[in-house]
């Protein structure tokens, strides 16, 4: 079992390495010369050359990659091309905001989704299942911006309960912060929960086709116990996987939500970085997103291995 966990971690590290190449090459194809962008139209050839030499931009591609990768390991994310500020400091605050948003959404949506998913699986074909199935299906079928817009329409425009734009200030108390984040929070909870409810239900129903479930029915075991004791324990692997995927999405895929609500998160920072051709910034953000994804997926796989009684209790 330890061998499997170890193997999984190695695969994750290899994936991260491939990701770093992709990110580095991928961002390098962005058009425009960094030195020209930073120094502007008026820059002299000499100053451009000096800038390039200072930043190592005159080196061959693989050298640049090596020094960049080395920087990543030592925590030196480089300096932002645009402002000259350290990227670590730029990202720091934003990363905190994103983690706060993702954390609160996860805390609410994960338990809620699992409970609702189990409920739908427990009463398949009944009205509660139908409502949940159709409701979540509709929610995953429409773009996030649609849901976000509706939230604004209902809570900000019609009811006037919540601010349409997220406002974050360091002086805010925790509850003020949460209040300021309310709209992106609600939107993300809806989007993420819809997906997780569906996958939890599907994961349980998939296990429900097993002969041991039929045996439990024939032993006169109650519905609730069949779902919670017999099915759920065997569906933990796939459910954890879905949760991990959705958490990864929360950290990285929330561009739209952050844009609509002007939430100062990491995704927004990266968009700005792309538009200003701030390569080091874009690369750092991309590595954070991919790293989060890979780490979460490894954790999900490890959890699945650990929850497998065959692997946990060898013969």
């Amino acid at each position: 079992m330890q061998r499997m966990v170890f193997q999984r971690i190695i695969i994750g590290i290899v994936t991260l390495w491939v990701v770093s190449i992709l990110v580095f090459v991928g961002t390098s194809i962005l058009p425009g010369d960094v030195a020209e962008i930073v120094l502007g139209q008026t820059a002299t050839p000499e100053s451009l050359a000096a800038y390039r030499a200072e930043r190592g931009l005159d080196q061959p591609m693989y050298m640049q990659y090596a020094s960049w990768l080395g920087g990543m390991f030592t925590g030196d994310l480089g300096t932002s091309k645009a402002g000259g500020a350290s990227i670590a400091s730029l990202i720091g605050g934003r990363f905190g905001n994103t983690m706060l948003l993702a954390g609160v959404v996860a805390l609410i949506s994960v338990p809620m989704s699992i409970v609702l998913g189990l409920l739908a699986a427990m009463y398949p074909g009944t009205w509660i299942d139908r409502i949940l199935t159709f409701g979540t299906l509709s929610l995953i079928s429409v773009p996030e911006f649609f849901i976000a817009t509706f939230m604004v329409l209902i809570f900000a425009v019609n009811l006037n309960w919540l601010p349409a734009i997220a406002h974050m200030s360091p002086e805010d108390s925790f509850w003020q912060t949460i209040g300021g984040m309310a709209m992106p929070l609600i939107t993300l909870i809806i989007v993420v929960a819809a997906q997780m409810i569906r996958m939890t239900r599907a994961g349980i129903l998939n296990v429900m086709n097993s002969p041991y479930i039929e045996m439990a029915i024939l032993k006169g075991v109650r519905r609730k116990r069949i779902i919670l004791r017999h099915a759920f324990y065997n569906a933990i692997g796939p459910i954890v996987n879905v949760v991990a995927l959705n958490l990864a999405y929360l950290v990285s895929g929330v561009v739209i939500v952050e844009t609509i609500f002007a939430y100062p998160g990491l995704a927004k920072l990266m968009i700005d970085g792309v538009q200003t051709r701030d390569l080091p910034l874009v690369q750092a953000c991309a590595m954070i997103f991919c790293g989060t994804y890979v780490i979460l997926i490894i954790m999900a796989d490890v959890a699945a291995i650990l929850s497998n009684p065959r692997l946990r209790n060898p013969k």
Partner: peptide
């Protein structure tokens, strides 16, 4: 079920829940 009438299936390997 289970109390008055009990069932034994063909394949015990598939009928026992692997997680319990």
């Amino acid at each position: 079920r289970g109390q008055k009438v009990a069932y034994l299936a063909q394949s015990a390997a598939a009928t026992f829940n692997p997680a319990i």
